[in-house]
């Protein structure tokens, strides 16, 4: 990105406030996805757009520093998690990709249902975030050169 120090003050300030909210919102979408509208894909897009916003009012390097991991790692690990969620039922002798659920009661939180579909969604979330960011970063870094 070209050195544009004169980013609008409004953009920078709102950006700083919105960033954590967007990340939280993306997690919210991720977690409610199984039973209600939401899910890994849309949550991943929201997370990626949060980082993209950060990139717009700072710089590509700052955005890369902020997410701390390389987008390619996100894609790889996300894909691995998604595949693992499909493989998990095979270990207990069930067909590939069958949904398996664990119910547990967490103190002060109530009943929590965790299962392989959630794991799958988490994988999708990481893949989508990683892919979008990889594309965005590579396009933005072209501008610098």
């Amino acid at each position: 990105m070209k050195p544009v120090p004169e980013h609008s003050l409004i953009l920078r300030v709102t950006g700083l406030f919105i960033l954590p909210l967007l990340i939280l919102f993306s997690l919210f979408l991720l977690l409610r996805g199984h039973n209600e509208p939401g899910g890994g894909f849309i949550a991943g897009l929201v997370a990626a757009s949060a980082v993209a916003l950060h990139m717009f009012f700072t710089s590509v390097e700052a955005a890369r520093r902020m997410i701390a991991v390389d987008p390619r790692d996100l894609i790889g690990w996300g894909l691995l998690i998604a595949i693992a969620s499909g493989l998990a039922p095979i270990l207990s002798g069930r067909p590939f990709m069958e949904a398996r659920w664990i119910e547990m009661t967490v103190p002060a939180f109530g009943l929590v249902k965790a299962g392989t579909p959630l794991l799958f969604d988490l994988g999708v979330y990481l893949v989508v975030t990683g892919t979008v960011l990889a594309i965005l970063f590579s396009l933005a870094e072209d501008d610098v050169q």
């Binding site: 390389d70 390619r72 790692d73 894609i75 790889g76 690990w77 894909l79 691995l80 595949i83």
Partner: peptide, 8 residues
């Protein structure tokens, strides 16, 4: 593919 990506 996933393993290759993770060990890029």
């Amino acid at each position: 593919a996933a393993l290759c990506l993770a060990s890029w």
